[in-house]
Design a protein around this nucleic acid. Structure first.
Lengths: 233, 233
DNA sequence: TCTTGACAACTGGTTGGACCAGTTGCACGC
DNA sequence: GCGTGCAACTGGTCCAACCAGTTGTCAAGA
């Protein structure tokens, strides 16, 4: 995604504090060191620390109050879905791949309804776009798993546009951002789905023809097994 | 939620810029004014502007690059679900209540699977907690819509804990945060659900007894009508 | 004329220091 | 013993300067 690999000072401080919190080394209710102390610890200016803390505050990880200390919040109840972008830290917290299962379950749950809404509501232009993206996934080009994955994502992108639901769109963005964090193995994770040509074609046909329930059934068949496999591991 | 109503300078600048972007007055790809210019426009220090921009950057609304200008991103594709907390701005953008419909559809979609997972996976402690919260909703206290709504939220809180899925938990937090933005009318929005005692009891029983599919059906009957009503309006 | 390269004028990134504005807690005086 | 008030913290804001990258211009060269 971001080819700009130049880390800023405030990003460094932010990542370190976030790791402290998500790992549990800083527990709920604990005060974090004062801005001045953090600045000295990291040998940076206090302004950089403030920018880092502001981001933690926005993410719902800490509560800041003038005069008082900045304390760690119960982030499982205050943070939003965007936190899933901190995948490595969260995964380290939970040990095994439970969070991967969680994300895939949510993807399946949302994906099924996205497909349903797309079949119901999409306009002619959106349906055509879905058909085009589906055709681009024709399996005549094998071996290029990365490329196929890219086109697979583009397909779902089109379906979500057709569903015309901003909440789904934003949630999808969050999930994609999280998957991007798990690195190169992402494409392999969806290999089975991309190879399931029969189900995939049924899904596309149903969406284009506006058969909402058939589309939902196909999406279920396509997405749920991936989540269940992750849950079994 | 937040009783601290003292607005900070950077929050003011942040809100203004966010409104400019979400309203479309600043279009995708447009550069926003330089930090120095913004500082002068608002008669504030540049650091305050920087903190505001940092938050916009984290939310995926702008792309910052040293040396170059800070430009507005295509936030429908780069922002995460947390953006739903900017409800009033988004609603103003879409005109009518489409975003409310979107959020309620997502709530239904996720809620159904949450209930299913809860019935499957919840431990004895979590099941007991669900039963307790359900009992607390007994309709012997009528009239206090706000109080009932509060206990209704607490009930769903327990169900989500029982589902043991961090992604659902975080998404729920985002949705709750968004609903909090729509103000006092929130409780009224769910009045029908809270009054549907039959379905609600079926849901609770199924969850406690571990009947996943019965629970999912009940959740569907409880949640989907609300979304459909919002869609019809 | 067209290219090329250096420079000037931007952009954001970081630092230091100072002061304001709240909160907290200890110590002094009653 | 109990208040009360004064430090000594906390975060919030400002000013001023400089570093580091990007961009556009414009003049010197091919």
């Amino acid at each position: 995604m971001s080819t700009d690999a130049r880390p800023t000072v405030s990003a460094t401080v932010h990542d370190r504090l976030r790791a402290e919190i998500l790992s549990g080394r800083l527990g709920v209710g604990d005060p974090i060191p004062s801005e001045r102390a953090l600045a000295e610890q990291h040998s940076v200016n206090r302004h950089a620390v403030r920018e880092a803390v502001k981001r933690l505050q926005q993410a719902g990880l800490v509560a800041v109050s003038q005069g008082g200390a900045t304390v760690v919040r119960d982030w499982r109840r205050t943070a939003g879905l965007d936190l899933l972008g901190s995948w490595p830290l969260l995964a380290a917290d939970s040990g095994d791949g439970v969070i991967l299962r969680d994300a895939l379950e949510m993807r399946a749950s949302i994906g099924i309804d996205v497909v349903r809404r797309c079949a119901q509501r999409a306009g002619a232009v959106e349906r055509a776009e879905v058909a085009v993206r589906a055709a681009a996934l024709a399996p005549d080009v094998v071996g290029d798993l990365e490329g196929t994955h890219e086109r697979y994502i583009a397909f779902w992108d089109a379906v979500i546009d057709g569903a015309d639901n901003l909440a789904y769109r934003l949630a999808y963005n969050s999930l994609i951002g999280a998957v991007g964090e798990i690195g190169a193995g992402a494409a392999h994770l969806f290999a089975r789905e991309m190879a399931d040509v029969t189900t995939f074609e049924a899904l596309t046909t149903a969406v284009v023809e506006g058969d909402a329930e058939a589309a939902a059934r196909a999406a279920d068949a396509l997405l749920s097994p991936t989540a269940n496999e992750a849950g079994a591991a």
